[in-house]
Amino acid sequence: MYPKELRYSTEHEWVRLEGGRARVGITKFAADRLSDVVYVELPKVGSEVAFMQPFGVVESVKAVSDLYAPLSGKVVEINQALVEKPEVINTDPYGAAWMIIVEPRDLKELAQLLDAGAYMALVGERPS
């Protein structure tokens, strides 16, 4: 449910380091709580995102959530396929439902994120 290799924000985003870049999405907990996701709004490639500042929006039929950037940096890629099929967020939150790839400005920010254990504690789940 919460892969060990990821880091998590308190606003329920995950981040995966891939070489010098960071891939970002939202957790299974967040996806479940939203229920059926119907819409996702992502930033433009080339725009800047800031640590724990909103970078986009995800919506279900009856709820709206801001997406918070777990790292500061420049957006180098966005998941266009997700914009067209937002329901993937509910089925594959850590895979096909990645949202943006960021070129991080300051990897020290990672230290402020949670590991899987701490995140599970935050959302009140026991390690399986």
């Binding site: 819409y39 919506e59 279900s60 039929v61 009856k62 709820a63 709206v64």
Partner: peptide
């Protein structure tokens, strides 16, 4: 598309 509206998005 009710998430645009006041009863869900309130101040936004």
């Amino acid at each position: 598309l009710q998430t645009r509206e006041q009863h869900i998005r309130r101040a936004r």
